[in-house]
Design a binder for these strands. Structure first.
Length: 614
RNA sequence: GGCGCCGUAGCCAAGUGGCUAAGGCAUCGGAUUGCAAAUCCGACAUCGUGGGUUCGACUCCCACCGGCGCCUCCA
């Protein structure tokens, strides 16, 4: 009966190793040269979320690093297929649906929308497939049947369990022995042959969502969907399987058992697990047990109040999933909130900062996460934005549209023949690639990006590019330096496009209000000093910016303006200051700069013109 | 209790058995600027503690201290 089962796994032959790339695998517990199942092709499967609630920042770690991994593998010439599964059927979803009085599918749809919005904001756009468990029932049932046929699984009162004692390799990923595994001692324990057996199929209780199967109505166990989906989209053996470190056991251990017992050959070649995020040095992972138990009010989480307030009229999945304006307004609140505030966090930090923050640390490390930490990291990011502006000032070229090599090549020729700066940049590129080759060390790679920024800035300084030294050949060299930065930052998915303004429109309007108040004050002071030329210049300047002033008894009111007003009003102030400087009235010019500074606008004099940044 | 991981400057964070222990933030000098900002140059660590292996360890081994994960849902 179970005679044909329990076959030993057949080894499979892999491609020649990549000459330099090595990946750490949880399975072998060491870095291994990278070989693929099929030459030139890579299949990646990343465990995505169970969509019973809004995503938290911890859910983004895997997608961000794997987005880089895919970009890098493509850069190295591989054809990559990346799958991220969505678990849209599970006990928690059922409970949540019951709580809220909507269907499980509705719960899933809402949270999937939220998840997708978060991914997009962080620049994760390399995923090829997002299979959902509910869309793969046929594949799931087929694998379970096959496991029963082969003697690895057994049906029991409508449930189906995997018999871990039949798999001699069970425990190899998480390095544990059968007697070290307690299993869940819950209500289904008596249906199992041994405590460590896990469910492949769970019979439905009345009223629960269910699917037909040879064992009656029910739903899949947590692990089996991944075996089914990866087989469907990537084949029985594929290259890289990823997920959070907390999934090693039991989830991934069980996936291996299911798939390898079913197919008789290796499941995934490399297991890449990302480290977990923590809030404090002694806090436990975000979204983890400790955090949940600490929270004093169990029924409602951070986002719920906001969400429900808006839900009243608008039926199905509201705007919550994509950082609606309500969440921006309440951004301050979310600072102290935990899981659930991701959309709000993105709304006022911007996805690029978060991505950069996550990439500064090696993906297997634990990261202490806080909004303050993101803000600190973001200071460094400004170096690049300033450099891009500088590049534009000098060449009128747009960094974001620079063309850069999409594939890896050792351009030693350019290094040897070029100037010192180009040679130095080539060394940085080599180090950058060496870092990525070494288990995707994005932290070290980013260090080289900073080094490149310094080289480019120094090049501009040394050749006096902003003071008239910009001949075509020199600008061409500068463009080559910038293109190297472009080429490498593309791999990390950074600087793909200009960063969204932190805070978006809300912050813009707040700033415009402050700037307008300053302008009105300055005009009032000018009038008081009978400096009518200045006062009128202000009013005329505002008029051409679309703003009307009306002097009232209680003060001056303003109206009008559009999206471009902020820029034009600040420009007006810059012009006023410029006039004062030309008249050597430094007291007046410095006062303008100082008062702008107080409301968060910094002025920077460059070459002939003045720039402002918030 | 079992299986693992981490501890590098004020903070964040790479890294290596032996060259100057990346990079970022902060700080302090200098150049530059009318003054600033930005930019550049320079300064700033002996790698948790105690042993051991070695010609030589921060890097390997052991112990201890501190922190974390998994062993039940979890990215």
């Amino acid at each position: 009966m179970s005679a044909p089962a329990l076959v030993t796994r057949r080894e499979i032959e892999l491609s020649e190793p990549h000459p330099s790339l090595a990946i750490y695998s949880t399975l072998s517990k060491r870095k291994e040269p990278f070989r693929t199942v099929e030459p030139g092709k890579v299949g990646i499967y990343l465990c995505g979320p169970t969509v019973y609630d809004k995503a938290h920042i911890g859910h983004m770690v895997g997608p961000v690093i794997f987005d880089c991994i895919k970009r890098y593998l493509k850069y190295c010439g591989y054809q990559v297929t990346w799958v991220v599964n969505i678990t849209d059927v599970d006990d928690k979803l059922i409970h949540k649906a019951g709580e809220r009085g909507i269907s499980m599918l509705q719960v899933a749809e809402e949270n999937i929308a939220d998840y997708m919005g978060n991914l997009a904001a962080l620049g994760v756009d390399q995923v090829d497939h997002f299979p959902r468990a509910t869309e793969c029932m046929g594949d799931i049932v087929a694998i379970i049947e096959s496991l029963i046929d082969r003697g690895y699984a057994y049906a029991s009162e409508g449930d189906v369990y995997f018999d871990v004692t039949k798999d001699p390799q069970y425990g190899k990923l998480s390095n544990r022995t059968l007697d070290a595994i307690q299993g869940d001692g819950g209500g289904t324990a008596e249906r199992k042959r041994s405590a460590a057996d896990f469910a492949l199929w769970k019979s439905a209780k009345p009223g629960e969502p269910s699917w037909d199967s040879p064992w009656g109505k029910g739903r899949p166990g947590w692990h089996i969907e991944c075996s089914a989906m990866s087989k469907k989209l990537l084949g029985e053996t594929f290259d890289i399987h990823g997920g959070g470190l907390d999934l090693v056991f039991p989830h991934h251990e069980n996936e291996i058992a299911q798939s390898e017992c079913c197919h008789g050959k290796p499941f995934a070649i490399y297991w890449a697990h990302n480290g977990l995020l923590r809030r404090d040095a002694s806090a436990g992972k975000i979204g983890g047990r400790a955090e949940r138990e600490r929270s004093p009010s169990p029924p409602h989480k951070a986002g719920d109040g906001i969400a429900s307030a808006h839900k009243a009229g608008d039926g199905i999945a509201g705007p919550d999933g994509i950082a609606g304006p309500d969440e921006q307004v309440s951004g301050k609140m979310s600072r102290s909130k935990g899981a659930g505030g991701l959309a709000a966090l993105i709304a006022h930090q911007g996805g690029q900062r978060i991505r950069f923050f996550l990439l500064r640390t090696h993906y297997r490390s634990t990261v202490l996460f806080s909004e303050e930490a993101i803000e600190e990291a973001a200071v460094g990011l400004e170096t690049f934005y300033r450099l891009f502006k500088r590049y534009h000032r000098i060449t009128r070229g747009d960094f974001y549209h620079l063309s850069a090599p999409a594939h890896r090549s050792e351009d030693t020729a350019a290094a040897a023949s070029g100037h010192a700066a180009l040679a130095a940049a080539a060394v940085c590129k080599q180090k950058f690639l060496a870092a990525m080759d070494d288990d995707f060390n994005t932290g070290a790679a980013i260090g080289e990006l900073f080094e490149l920024a310094k080289i480019a800035n120094r090049f501009c300084d040394e050749h006096n590019l902003e003071g008239g030294g910009a001949d075509n050949a020199t600008m061409g060299d500068l463009t080559m330096l910038m293109a190297t930065i472009k080429e490498l930052s593309n791999i990390l998915g950074l600087f793909l496009k200009p960063p969204a303004l932190p805070g978006g429109h809300v912050a813009n309007e707040a700033l415009l209000g402050k700037v307008m108040q300053l302008v009105i004050d300055l005009r009032a002071e000018a009038r008081k000093a009978k400096n009518f030329a200045t006062a009128d210049a202000i009013r005329d300047g505002l008029a051409s910016a679309g703003v009307k002033l009306e002097d009232r008894a209680g003060g001056t009111e303003w109206s009008g303006g559009d999206a471009a007003t902020l820029e034009r009003v600040v420009q007006l102030l810059i012009n006023l200051r410029q006039t004062a400087r030309q008249n050597k009235d430094y007291a007046a010019s410095d006062a303008i700069r100082h008062r702008l500074g107080e409301i968060g606008v910094k002025l920077e004099d460059r070459g002939g013109e003045t720039e402002w940044v918030r």
